[in-house]
Design a protein around this nucleic acid. Structure first.
Length: 857
RNA sequence: GCGGAUGUGGUGGAAUUGGUAGACACGCCAGAUUUAGGUUCUGGUGCCGCGAGGCGUGGGGGUUCGAGUCCCUUCAUCCGCACCA
């Protein structure tokens, strides 16, 4: 009996696939196309088991689609720009470019050992000048199409690292790396005008039926469309130029409950006031400091500063509403100014209580009619309430009805207009960093901002840079920075900001359709392959990456780089779960906790210990992370067990969208199963060679039925992204073949052939090995997927459970085709049923054909 | 606070969508072979009960001939978003 040796078999088949060019994507008019894509990896340098799971999922789909007659595109590339390369440059003196390409080489080699059905001929990295040069061309096209804007934006500036920080890089008002107090700085930045597409990006979500509902909802909330009224109140006591205060509200029905107005500390009025008033300046400074920390924001008390200015509410003649500067008003949303209605908004209520402002009911509960003095009364807008201070309309209305009427009235009175407001903001893409795609524009003293000539693309990143001090090395690289103005030829300087790396990942899927084109895409290729039929990746990209990609397909279509109307990049999206592992901890002599890697820990009946016997605390099962050291290196697994074992394990047990716990026992089980399949194949092939008995008889027929059921169920599992169920069915088929024994004759041989094809998407190397041993032609990776024969799926006889008053009391065997009346007779004749009947006549007899019988007494 | 999910054996999870709850796997128990590679094979394994039988899908109620599945209510856990006017 031979043993299956993954270490020799796997490289052998990988070479065979490569030699035959099995996975090269080819346009084929005779076949439907299928584009399957997993989110491309960042080349950190090491593959982790999360990658193995993610890419195996895509591989299962790709291999299955190829077997079912599709022209498959399944490419791979590298999301290669980004900050870690610069950090590496600073920490170890290796250039970002060298570091990145070295990582790519290492990871590609690791990927190769997994036996993924990837078309490597299309590989590229986003830091290849051939790629980012086309991205620069896209930028220029979008600039011409009016989709790019240049405007000021406030950023978190780290004065020590000389860099902009993301919100999450600011901790307690300090930079995460430098610890320096973060400043708010206004910079002129480049923006993509994603808000131009806000409405379309929102409404088109309805058509994305292949997306998880959860992700669609998150995107809808992010875009945040709301209808409301834009209006203004006249101010008294305000500085010149601020005679009116522009506001936006979604609840104009509560106008007559207004008791104050509030503006953001960043509002132009606040900024004007703070110039002459030290107390206001101090208050605003306080608010801004708070704004940098999320935790502080959450717990922050609502505070305001009474400016002494008042606003006149036209719907409450004679009242003067005090105007506050308040820490809870956002400049980024609406106009940065609100009116407060304490009776019907919890936050306004808290604010009014604190500053002794009046609380005026606009509407009351229909039944109790109680006033809202202790708590804000905020019923759903669809619920009818009793209006006591409506702008117009009957006493009883829903909030929605009252809002519509209030808007109509305000428009008729010339006091405001109906507007649609979005939460979505334009996408700022400027990054003050080196390792990114240069923005292809120059700044000329006489011509202003000038786009680079297309002939000069790509604007390459200079290679002779050093990271010996903070800041962007492009800023201090005169031979790169200084260049002739493309318009007048005079002296000019290059834009030294580079693009957000989300830009790189917003169109790579389109580039894969024609990775060598002289333009961003080849329209004919894009027309054939796009959109991506199945996209797979982590839910952490549910908002930004996916929204930006959706924006880019629209922008590219407008610029002629994608076929018109092909606006959605991903027809179907699947968000996979993470790989988790137990954590292991000991307490060192210094009293500090230490984390331990799984391979340092020994398990026995008495508990977990280190090699030297030190007891180990087994902690919770959490996402694998370097800091907790609960990681498993795929290299080790592949070297020890082979790629098929790793693939089989990560696809089994847990549904793909849930987390899966990596356990040594689970890997062992996968490995044992694959060995068992091989032993079984070995035995059957040996026997059928000497004894090719015909596949008749009962055992053969049973096995044939089981085989066809397996075809149906494994296929269903793959189609439904329930790979764990497919795996369970493959286990069941293996058990069935083993159980059938030699009396099933040649049927075992046929079942084994089917098993080889059905398991090919999961364990392709072993499948090839069996396929070859069976003497089948060609590669199983190119074999056609089997079809379940409907005749083999129906049973001739079924066992029906019999319930008496809903409790299962007996079973009867009936022919599958038996009609209900015959079944009824058989049930009543059954001795066990008669025992329970005890002479009574059933009131009712329910026969669900093929399912169940219920006798009601 | 708002929004969304998820709760099934010792464990991961199945359940034809209202029709035999626990497929498949891990683990465990018993037996066989005496296995040299990380054995393999057979049988058993929801809980209580010696048994007939009873109970059982987070808890409580309801609809139904029949509920893991539908409705109401409640608890727990997880995720997303957020001073969004």
């Amino acid at each position: 009996m031979s043993r299956y040796n993954a270490q020799t078999a796997e490289p052998k088949w990988q070479k065979a696939w490569e030699k035959a060019g099995v996975f090269a994507a080819r346009r084929d008019p005779a076949k439907p196309k299928y584009y399957v894509l997993e989110m491309f990896p960042y080349p950190s340098g090491t593959l982790h088991v999360g990658h193995v799971r993610n890419y195996t999922m895509g591989d299962v789909v790709a291999r299955y689609k190829a077997a079912t007659g599709h022209a498959v595109l399944h490419p791979m590339g590298w999301d290669a720009f980004g900050l870690p390369a610069e950090n590496a440059a600073m920490e170890r003196g290796i250039g970002p470019r060298a570091w990145t390409y070295q990582n790519i080489d290492a990871m590609r080699a690791q990927f190769r050992t997994l036996g993924l059905s990837l078309d490597w001929s299309r590989e590229f990295a986003t830091c290849d000048p051939e790629y980012y040069g086309q991205q620069q061309a896209l930028f220029l096209d979008m600039l011409e199409a009016g989709l790019v804007a240049r405007k000021n934006a406030v950023v978190n500036w780290d004065p020590v690292d000389l860099t902009v920080l993301a919100n999450e890089q600011v901790e307690d008002g300090r930079g995460w790396r430098s610890g320096a107090l973060v400043e708010r700085r206004e910079l002129t930045q480049w923006f993509f005008k994603i808000t131009d597409f806000a409405e379309d990006l929102l409404t088109a979500l309805d058509g994305l039926e292949g997306w998880p509902e959860k992700v669609r909802l998150m995107q809808a909330n992010w875009i945040g469309r709301s209808q409301g009224l834009a209006f203004s109140f006249d101010l008294s006591g305000a500085p010149e130029g601020f005679e009116r205060l522009e506001m936006f509200t979604t609840r104009p029905d509560t106008f007559r409950g207004a008791s104050f107005c509030a503006i953001s500390p960043d509002h132009p009025l606040a900024k004007t006031l703070e110039k002459d008033r030290a107390d206001i300046a101090a208050f605003c400074a306080d608010c801004r400091r708070m704004g940098t920390s999320e935790a502080a924001l959450e717990t922050a008390e609502k505070v305001g500063f009474d400016t002494g200015i008042t606003a006149a509410n036209p719907y409450m003649p004679g009242t003067d509403l005090p105007v506050f500067i308040a820490n809870f008003v956002l400049m980024d949303y609406g106009t940065g100014a609100i009116f407060g209605c304490p009776a019907h908004d919890a936050r306004d209520h808290a604010f009014a209580t604190k500053y002794g402002l009046s609380i005026i009911d606009v509407y009351l509960p229909r039944q109790s009619g109680e006033s809202a003095t202790t708590d804000a009364f905020v019923p759903p807008k669809s619920e009818p309430v009793r209006y006591v201070r409506a702008i117009s309309g009957p006493e009883e209305m829903t909030g929605d009805q009252a809002i519509a009427r209030a808007i109509d009235t305000a428009e008729a009175d010339g006091l405001g207009r109906r507007v649609t407001q979005y939460r979505l903001r334009d996408w700022g893409i400027s990054r003050q960093r080196y390792w990114g795609c240069p923005i292809p524009v120059l700044h000329c003293d006489s011509c202003g901002v000038v786009p680079e000539k297309r002939a000069n693309l790509p604007v390459r990143l200079p290679e002779d840079v050093v990271f010996d001090r903070p800041g962007n090395p492009l800023d201090r690289h005169p031979t790169w920075r200084d260049a002739p103005c493309p318009a007048c030829g005079g002296p000019a300087t290059r834009e030294t900001d580079t693009m957000d790396t989300f830009v790189d990942s917003s169109w790579y899927f389109a580039r894969f359709t024609s990775p060598n084109a002289e333009t961003p895409t080849d329209l004919a290729e894009a027309d054939y392959w796009m959109d991506v039929d199945q996209y797979i990746g982590g839910v952490e990209h549910a908002i930004l990456h996916l929204l930006y990609a959706r924006f880019f397909t629209r922008a590219m279509a407008r610029c002629g780089h994608l076929p018109e109307g092909r606006n959605e990049p991903f027809a179907a999206l699947f968000t996979q779960g993470m790989v988790t592992h137990e954590t292991y901890q000991t307490t060192g002599p210094d009293g500090r906790a230490r984390w331990h890697a799984p391979d340092e820990v020994r398990h026995s009946d008495t508990g977990a210990t280190l090699a030297d016997g030190t007891p180990v605390d087994v902690g919770p099962v959490i996402k694998m992370s370097k800091s907790k050291r609960n990681v498993v290196d795929p290299n080790d697994i592949v070297a020890q067990y082979g790629a098929d074992t790793a693939r089989w394990f990560v696809m089994s047990d847990s549904p793909p969208d849930r987390d899966v716990e990596w356990t040594a026992a689970g890997v062992e089980a996968a490995w044992r199963h694959l060995q068992r399949v091989w032993r079984l194949a070995d035995e059957i092939i040996g026997q059928s060679a000497s004894d090719p008995s015909p596949a008749e008889g009962k055992a053969a027929l049973t096995l044939r039925r089981q085989t066809h059921r397996a075809i149906r169920d494994v296929t269903e599992g793959i189609e439904g992204f329930a790979f764990n169920k497919s795996i369970a069915q493959l286990y069941a088929l293996t058990n069935a073949i083993a159980k059938a024994g030699p009396e099933a004759g040649a049927e075992r041989h046929a079942a084994l052939r089917t098993l080889a094809i059905l398991s090919m998407p999961f364990t392709p190397h072993l499948a090839e090995e069996i396929w070859a041993a069976l003497g089948c032609d060609g590669l199983v990776s190119q074999a056609a997927w089997p079809q379940a024969d409907p005749a083999m799926l129906v049973e001739e006889s079924v066992t029906l459970p019999v319930q008496i008053n809903g409790k299962r009391r007996a079973e009867i065997a009936v022919p599958a085709a038996a009609d209900p009346a015959a079944v009824e007779a058989m049930v009543l004749a059954d001795p066990k049923v008669q025992k329970y009947l005890d002479g009574q006549v059933p009131r009712k007899l329910i026969v669900v054909p093929g399912r169940i019988v219920n006798v009601v007494l």
